[in-house]
Design a protein around this nucleic acid. Structure first.
Lengths: 183, 183
DNA sequence: CTAAACTTTCAATAATTACTGAAACTTTAG
DNA sequence: CTAAAGTTTCAGTAATTATTGAAAGTTTAG
């Protein structure tokens, strides 16, 4: 499978960005290739298109499957495994976001909970615990908020996003309504 | 400067997480140390506490300054440079978030814009461009939304976070109000 | 201006992470 | 059951990234 220059540009760029998004270059390239290819692609085709080893493709696929970003697809009368992306771009963003939360926030949150159970041994630790409490509360807030946003329907999320900072006005309206109810 | 076990646990953990948050281990450790230390700390104290070279501390400090996460602080009659964290924990989260957006989304967004200006050379590229357009729109939406959220006052943001998925109901109310106005 | 006190830079090297490819394993057609 | 067609694993190696420490640079007291 040969990539056209346009497609190659994107695939290579996505590879470079991959490491910033929490996966390695190869994984990024494989995913990009699957996103912009309509037909399911075999592991050998991936290896050929990206000029990487078959073994590397296998590990990349495993990684993408663990992120639930790709799907296995079989063709009748063909023993090869074919792959394609799983879900819409929006689903992809959600998955990446959730996976990153798990890797980037959950371990810290858990450690902070443990530390905050300990009793401070001196004034330095008292100050430290205050700060750690703040970090904990922030992480917990973001975690809860993001998991609740994910429970929102895509349409609502879309409305919310389009609203942008206009959300401030909507919050004001809510405040007023609440006040009126309480009066 | 000697760290107590509690403080060391946190500092080391933050170092490990650092690489997942977009900076390296040393930078994470230095920042953690500054967060939980009330008094400004000198570069030499940092090197001693973390058992790393003076040069490495210098580079770490440079990095943290570029993220605008720490501040220089001078003590009267002392030529040494002392450092302390800049702003609240919430400010820190904002800075990290913005910095990551710059590194993780802006370059891709810019590349996608360029590619989308090209004319598709064949049917594969037509399909590819459709997908790239989706990715572009998603990234642009998130970018715009996050920059608008940052413009919101901390109190509003707090309200919004606490609201969680309840934001759905508020959006419904807004819809109804709009309808009434249009009738 | 000079030298002491401090900071930064960067080439060399250490540590980490990713990739290859051959061997082991799995599945299925015949 | 056997062999062919495919996939996965993993030890060795390549590539990348982080760290050290000595040298160069900067600032200021005297």
């Amino acid at each position: 499978m040969k990539m056209t220059p346009m497609i190659e540009t994107f695939v290579m760029h996505f590879g470079e960005m991959g490491s910033r998004w929490g996966f390695n270059r190869t994984v990024g390239q494989i995913y990009a290739l699957l996103v912009i290819t309509k037909e399911p692609v075999s592991a050998n085709q991936i290896a050929e298109a990206l000029s990487i080893s078959r073994g590397n493709v296998s590990m990349g696929i495993k990684e993408l499957q663990s992120w639930q970003l790709i799907q296995l697809h079989h063709k009748a009368g063909d023993r090869k495994d074919y792959y394609q992306t799983n879900g819409s771009i929006w689903d992809m963003a959600n998955k990446v976001f959730e996976e990153r939360r798990k890797r980037e926030m959950d371990p810290t949150l858990s450690l902070l909970r443990d530390i905050l159970l300990d009793t401070a041994a001196n004034e330095n630790e008292v100050y430290a615990q205050e700060k750690l409490q703040e970090v904990h509360d922030l992480l917990e807030g973001v975690t809860k908020w993001s998991s609740e946003l994910q429970r929102l329907s895509p349409e609502k999320l879309d409305t919310l996003m389009k609203l942008g900072s206009g959300v401030g006005k909507v919050l004001d309206i809510k405040e007023k309504l609440l006040k009126r109810t309480n009066e």
